[in-house]
């Protein structure tokens, strides 16, 4: 399947996946921090590998990333990405402890962000699964705090064997309250063979 030739209908269907997932994730995050969480309208982008890094702030920018491999009928990779400041704001909000820092490998801070990511991404994926009626089993969360380029290439390995670009469904959730910003970025990168299954499940024609 040549992803550069997707129809508008197919892109809309994929965007709807992002919409449903992020909506549920925002609700879940909102319960976690007990405040209103907004979501942006998701975007569907077909990007070269270098462009993908630029979207996150360049290959060298430091990000906090939780990676989930999805097993099941439509495998892929989901990232939940924050800047260090955003992740620390979230940790502070959940624990009421503003001394926790991620950069010194504080185990408590790390397990808080891991668990929050697990809950919110679980909500994202279960909405996807319900909507498409496709089984999506997430792996345990894998955490890394490092350069965006190094982290994101992991999610590109499957697709890089068949193409030189990736399709990402990008959804943001955020809350601005006083000065602390809580934000998160979901990137869903379906494996190349998953698209036909996703389209079929959504009742969209598979022809491109």
């Amino acid at each position: 399947m040549d992803l550069t030739k997707l129809t508008q209908m197919q892109k809309d269907a994929l965007r709807e996946i992002g919409n449903i997932g992020a909506g549920n994730a925002a609700t879940s995050m909102s319960k976690l921090v007990n405040r209103k969480i907004d979501m942006d309208v998701p975007t569907v982008n077909i990007v070269s590998f270098d462009e993908m890094m630029e979207r996150i702030g360049g290959p060298e920018s430091i990000v906090v990333a939780l990676l989930f491999r999805i097993q099941g009928d439509a495998p892929g990779t989901v990232y939940f990405i924050f800047s260090i400041e955003e992740a620390e704001a979230l940790i502070k909000e959940i624990t009421n402890n503003d001394a926790l820092r991620l950069d010194v490998n504080d185990e408590l801070a790390i397990s808080v962000i891991q668990e929050a990511g697990n809950i919110v991404t679980g909500a994202y994926l279960s909405a996807l699964g319900d909507f498409t009626n496709i089984t999506m089993q997430p792996s345990v969360p894998y955490l890394s705090i490092d350069m965006a380029g190094a982290i994101l290439t992991v999610g590109l390995l499957e697709v890089s064997q068949v193409a030189d670009y990736a399709l990402i469904i990008d959804a943001k959730i955020s809350s601005s309250y006083q000065v602390s910003q809580i934000k998160g970025n979901f990137l869903f990168i379906p494996d190349p063979d998953s698209f036909s299954k996703l389209f079929k499940a959504l009742g969209v024609t598979n022809d491109v």
């Binding site: 360049g58 290959p59 060298e60 350069m147 190094a150 890089s160």
Partner: peptide, 23 residues
């Protein structure tokens, strides 16, 4: 040099690539 990319050059230039993970 970007991902899956290759370049050659001469001194006094330097040559650089960013964010190598498994690459």
């Amino acid at each position: 040099v970007g991902i899956a990319d290759l370049k050659v050059t001469k001194a006094p230039n330097k040559i650089r690539t960013s964010g190598l993970g498994s690459c």
